[in-house]
C-alpha cells in the first residue's frame, strides 16, 4: 500500500490529482466517464459576481501540441451557483473548490463571501490570471501591488482555504507568489494559460474572435514546470502545479519540481477518464520506485 494523501494546509486531498477550472465543468459533465470520488479534488468553472455571456464564437483554435481558448468566463454568476448548482454537486465525495474571478475587487470579495457560506465547499481558487476578459482578470495577477490588493481584500471575508491561481504572463512569477503568500494565501496554483494567438494565413483572419487567447496543453508544460520549480523554492505555502499534464509521468515531474498537488486541464477534453488514470499511474510509479509516501516525492528533484 502506498500513501497518496497530501495536505494543502488544512485541506486533505486523498490523492494529489485535482481537475483544473474551465476544463471540468461542474464535475457533472464527467460523471458518465469516471467516479468523481476517485479524485483529490475538482475545481469548478470560473464563477463571477454576475452572469457573463463570455466571448463570441470562435473561442478555440487547435495549435501544435495544444489549443488556444478565449471562452471569457462564461458563467451564470455566483447567485445561480449557490442556488442551482451547489445543491447538485455538494455531496461529491471529493474536495469541490470554486474558481472565483472578477473584474473589480468588490466583485471578487462579494463572490468569495457568498461561497464562504457554503458548507461543502472547502476552498476557493482565486483567479487573478484569466487572459480572456477585458477588465480585471489577468491584470490583477501581473503586478505584485494589484495581486496583494485583491488577495488582502478577499482574505478578510473568506475564512476557508484560499488558493490563488497565478498568471505565467509575468517577468517574475516567484515575486507574485511571495506577494500573495504575504497576504494570507493558503496555497498557489500555477500556471494559468499563456497568452497566445493564431492566424489563418489563407483568410488572413485571426482564429479567435478576440484575436488573442490562452494557450494550454503539452506545448506549455516546460514553461509551467519551470515556474512551479521557481515558485516552490520561493514560498512556504503549498504549490499546486498545472500546465499540459497529459499522464502520470507529467504529474510526477510537477511533484518532483515541488508541487504538492497537480491539476489536470486540457487533457480532460481528449480523454475524459485521464484524471483517474493519472491517479493509478502515480500509484504504479511509486510502487516501481519503492516510494511509500507521495509526500516524499514533493520537491524531490535530484539536482546533483
Amino acid at each position: 500500500m502506498v500513501n497518496l494523501e497530501v495536505k494543502l494546509k488544512d485541506m486533505v486531498l486523498k490523492n494529489p490529482v485535482m481537475t483544473a477550472s474551465g476544463t471540468f465543468g461542474f464535475g457533472e459533465e464527467f460523471a458518465d466517464f469516471i467516479d468523481l470520488s476517485d479524485l483529490g479534488g475538482i475545481i469548478v468553472k470560473g464563477t463571477t459576481r454576475h452572469h457573463r455571456e463570455g466571448n463570441p464564437y470562435p473561442r478555440m483554435a487547435e495549435t501544435p501540441s495544444g489549443m488556444l481558448n478565449a471562452v471569457g468566463l462564461q458563467n451564470k454568476g455566483v447567485e445561480n451557483f449557490c442556488k442551482d448548482i451547489y445543491p447538485r454537486i455538494k455531496d461529491y465525495q471529493t474536495n469541490v473548490m470554486v474558481n472565483v474571478s472578477g473584474s473589480v475587487i468588490g466583485d471578487y470579495v462579494e463572490t468569495a463571501a457568498m461561497i464562504n457560506d457554503l458548507d461543502h465547499i472547502p476552498g476557493i481558487e482565486l483567479n487573478i490570471s484569466c487572459p480572456n476578459v477585458k477588465e480585471g482578470g489577468m491584470a490583477f495577477g501581473t503586478s505584485c501591488a494589484s495581486a496583494k490588493e485583491v488577495v488582502r481584500a478577499v482574505r478578510k471575508v473568506y475564512k476557508k482555504h484560499l488558493m490563488v491561481k497565478l498568471s505565467p504572463n509575468v517577468t517574475d512569477i516567484a515575486s507574485i507568489a511571495k506577494a500573495v503568500e504575504g497576504q494570507g494565501a493558503d496555497s498557489v496554483s500555477l500556471i494559468n494559460t499563456l497568452l497566445g494567438m493564431a492566424i489563418d494565413a489563407e483568410t488572413r483572419k485571426p482564429l479567435l474572435s478576440t484575436v488573442t487567447g490562452g494557450l494550454s496543453g503539452p506545448a506549455v508544460k516546460p514553461v509551467a514546470l519551470r515556474m512551479v520549480w521557481q515558485v516552490a523554492q520561493a514560498v512556504n505555502i503549498p504549490v499546486v502545479g498545472l500546465g499540459g499534464i497529459m499522464n502520470a509521468k507529467d504529474a510526477i515531474e510537477f511533484i518532483l519540481a515541488g508541487a504538492t498537488a497537480v491539476q489536470i486541464g486540457t487533457a480532460n477534453f481528449i480523454d475524459p477518464q485521464v484524471s483517474v488514470k493519472i491517479v493509478e499511474g502515480i500509484k504504479e510509479y511509486m510502487i516501481r520506485h519503492q516510494v511509500s509516501d507521495i509526500n516524499d516525492l514533493i520537491g524531490a528533484i535530484n539536482l546533483k
Binding site: G22, R59, N69
Partner: peptide
C-alpha cells in the same frame, strides 16, 4: 474541444 459541455468553446 471536448464534445460534452465542459470546455464551452463551441
Amino acid at each position: 474541444a471536448c464534445g460534452f459541455g465542459a470546455c464551452l468553446c463551441c
